[in-house]
Computed example of a mutant assay.
Amino acid sequence: MDTQALAAFIEVADSASFTRAAERLHLSQPAISKRLKALEEQIGHRLFDRVGRSVLLTDAGAALLPYARRALQTVEDGRRALSQLSGQVSGRLSIGTSHHIGLHRLPPVLKRYVHQFPDVDLDLHFMDSEDACEAVLAGRLEMGIVTLPLQPLIHLDSGVVWPDPLAVVTAPTHPLAGQRRVRLEDLARHPAVLPDEDTYTHRIIRAELQARGVAPRVRLATNYLETLKMLAAIGLGWSVLPESMIDDSLCRLNVQGFKPHRDLGWVRHTGRAVSGPARVLLELLSETH
């Protein structure tokens, strides 16, 4: 079977949309439809039903999907293994990373990388850390550079690159700003703006608070730390942000017994071959400690 057709089939199945699949594969929607039509003719079964605006797998599509995933993963593993045979580091490296890491941590590493290995085609995707881990598990990405989960995920190897201590912050005009010490009970009486509850960072913060019997009053949640910084700075609520983001627009609170911490680092699938481009990136990341 044509691996490009299988890739189109998997993307449409995962996104339930021809349009989103075309965007992810950097193709036109007619090109996606053409590849799927060729695949359907080859196997003799219709793979999708269109119901209104929804795209649903047929029984044949659902049966084919796990085999298509394994076939593409096997081909990708072969490509990665072959890339190790040559002394020259080249080929494609697909990475998922969060906006925060991509803006604040990765640029110096990637600058060195593209200078030292110009023959590597970096395929960089910005997404939530949780989605990047899922994409690595599914074989859509080779690596994630992410906020590491509280508990290790099955089939994911990981390594800490940047310890990332967090701090409670408010606007300088907040009622708690300027106090020498703040109790958690006092903090809980004021509204908070925090990372979305589905994020690893939110889970880290909430676990720390729950261990001390405190439940935050969340006024607003978003995945973007830069947005949270702005919301806290204008006085919408207190927040928890990386210490590295604190500047004159924020006031750091000294909260008794509350020192949340997260780790930023890499993840990769334990059952997949490591390509040459991924190997040298892991070496560069290990040097950034």
Rank of each mutant, 00 (worst) to 15 (best):
A16H: 15
H45L: 02
L65V: 06
L124W: 08
F18P: 00
S28W: 03
P30H: 02
L148A: 05
D77Y: 08
I32S: 00
T97N: 06
V114N: 03
I43S: 01
D49Y: 13
R79L: 14
E142G: 09
E76S: 14
V55W: 01
G87V: 08
A132L: 08
S28E: 12
G96P: 11
Q73K: 11
V120K: 10
L122R: 13
G102Q: 05
V89Q: 07
S28M: 08
L56A: 09
A135G: 02
K34F: 01
R35E: 04
A81K: 13
G139S: 04
F18L: 13
R70H: 13
R112W: 05
L82I: 10
D121L: 13
A31P: 00
S94W: 02
K37F: 01
V51K: 12
G144C: 04
R112K: 15
F18M: 11
L27Q: 02
Q116V: 06
T74H: 12
G87L: 14
C133N: 09
Q73C: 06
R70S: 12
H99L: 15
K111W: 11
L64M: 15
H115E: 14
A62W: 09
Q84E: 09
H115Y: 11
I95F: 00
A138K: 10
I32R: 00
R92S: 10
I101C: 00
R69K: 15
G139N: 06
I101Y: 00
R20K: 15
T97Y: 06
G52K: 10
R24E: 06
V114S: 11
S28N: 06
A132F: 06
Q29T: 14
L93W: 03
L72K: 13
L124Q: 08
I43C: 07
L150Q: 15
V114W: 06
H45W: 02
P118R: 14
A16M: 10
A138L: 11
Y113S: 05
V55E: 03
G44D: 07
V114M: 10
Q88P: 00
I101V: 15
L57E: 10
A21F: 03
P118T: 13
K34N: 04
H125Y: 13
L27K: 05
L148C: 03
I43E: 01
A16I: 02
A60V: 12
